[in-house]
Design a protein around this nucleic acid. Structure first.
Length: 418
RNA sequence: GUGGGCGUAGCUCAGCUGGUAGAGCACUCGGUUGUGGUCCGAGAUGUCGCGGGUUCGAGCCCCGUCGUUCACC
């Protein structure tokens, strides 16, 4: 049992460590309540999980939500959320909240290509991830990032200080340091350059965080997580983890850590293992942007405590749904007359009340509740899967559970049943 | 009744001076990992209204015919 930072209203306790390896079960305590880890944190980028009401997110077991500083800065602006009493109050969510720094978005939405967080080698080779006639909208320098708004083209600039100021106004319980997210396309020298910037920005985030924490008297404590970069390189990842793991500035250190950047899907576990075995064991680790079922197992067994990912909700909006047998597109023709639930092993609201045929109809008719019902299902599926991993860790059956799941879960399935 | 226009993929239409057909949407199926409810990718689809003729060759030219539409009586 270890506990860190319990005097500030934020703490992390490890309740159970796996017999071997990095996996553990813990509790993150925040001013807005606890998060039992490992946990999947659904994403509500613009202060809403797209298509779903906060009550529904609570009912499906979400312990916290993650929003984004870049998006909320552009619209409606951090002052509005500050006046509203913070992100949670604004969106009627009284449980814990996270905000991402915007470091990823100023680049991924602007620099000219889609960032890819985890990819297989085949995808990497294809040209679909390469810029295609897109205007370069962002410029990175040692001080920060200058970028154009994707909404109206206006110019803006984020620095470590700006990101911290925005995130303090947004008021989430857990914030992330401003970092430079690279891709697998970047050269090793560029990765080193970006990592050294992220290091400098991490110090500046701690300094600004300390200044803002002291100046915003009476506000609930907001925790700050440093972000580990270093791409696919073992020495860079371990150096980043070592540097940020021991970093202290203005008398404060990071409350936890995010693992970011480009990750080859096949080496996800290896990279996360390098990082988590180097970082201080007693602090929580968040794996940024990863959430495919098979990747969650790999993350958990390599010591990840929390995840966030848009995948479940994004694919839900275009009709892809998860089941224990694999994922499939419920809008496909075979499901027009399939009156079974999406997954009859699922305990979600959608599966309890609606059929594949109904969802198939809603998607084909382009009705908005299609996205709502599919998102509720997919978010429940992923939240529950990680909850089950947590229980399996406690029971000492994690590897059995993983083997059983991976044996059944096929990426392509979707046979209609009668 | 007379004159003109138009009949090409399920829909709306492109097809230059003749070389056996394309687009968008729809449809079928993939994809989407710190969210631009977007987008990307792949695929299927035609007796070019019908019947003759000219030509080596006709969706394109000629004749007839059917349908449709407009104008004028």
């Amino acid at each position: 049992m270890s506990k860190a930072n319990s005097d500030k209203g934020f703490s992390f306790a490890i309740n159970h460590a796996a017999d071997s390896g990095l996996a553990r079960v813990g509790t993150i305590s925040t001013p807005h309540g606890d998060i039992q880890t490992p946990a999947f944190i659904p994403v509500g980028t613009k202060a809403t999980v797209k298509t779903v009401l906060p009550e529904a997110m609570e009912n499906l077991g979400a312990q916290a939500l993650l929003s984004n500083a870049y998006h909320l800065y552009l619209q409606p602006g951090p002052d509005v959320l500050d006046e509203a009493g913070g992100l949670g109050s604004f969106m009627n969510w009284d449980k814990p909240t996270f905000t991402d720094s915007g470091g990823f978005q100023v680049l991924s939405l602007g620099v000219g290509f889609k960032k890819v967080l985890a990819m297989d080698a085949q995808t990497f080779r294809s040209d679909q991830v390469i810029a295609k006639n897109k205007e370069r909208l962002a410029h990175v320098d040692d001080e920060g990032v200058t970028f154009k708004s994707h909404l109206d083209g206006s110019m803006h600039r984020f620095t470590a200080e700006v990101s911290m100021q925005i995130q303090h106004k947004l008021g989430a319980d857990i914030m992330f340091a401003f970092d430079e997210c690279t891709t697998l396309h970047n050269t090793r020298p560029y990765q080193e350059l970006a990592m050294s910037r992220t290091y400098d920005w991490a110090i500046r985030c701690l300094d600004e965080h300390k200044r803002l924490t002291d100046s915003r008297v009476g506000k609930p404590y907001q925790a700050l997580f440093g972000v580990i970069q270093g791409a696919q390189y073992e020495d860079l990842r371990k150096k980043a983890a070592s540097d940020l793991g021991t970093m202290s500035s203005s008398g404060v250190e990071f409350d936890g850590f995010g693992i970011g950047g480009a990750l080859d899907k096949d080496s996800l576990g290896t990279i996360v293992g390098w990082v988590n075995s180097t970082l201080p064991q007693e602090k929580p680790k968040h794996l940024l942007g990863i959430g495919a079922p098979e990747d969650l197992f790999v993350g958990v067994e390599n010591g990840v405590d929390t995840f966030d990912c848009v995948l479940a909700s994004r694919i839900a909006r275009t009709s892809a749904v998860y089941t224990m047998e694999g994922r499939f597109n419920v809008s496909n023709k075979p499901f027009i007359r399939d009156f079974n639930p999406i997954d009859d092993e699922c305990d979600c609201y959608t599966c309890a009340n609606y059929s594949r045929a109904y969802l198939c109809h809603l998607f084909r008719a382009k009705e908005m509740v299609a996205g709502t019902l599919a998102t509720i299902h997919n978010e429940r599926f992923i939240v529950r899967l990680v909850d089950q991993m947590r229980q399996a860790l406690i029971d000492g059956t994690f590897q059995d559970m993983k083997k059983e799941f991976m044996g059944r879960y096929k990426h392509k399935s979707g046979q209609a049943r009668d």
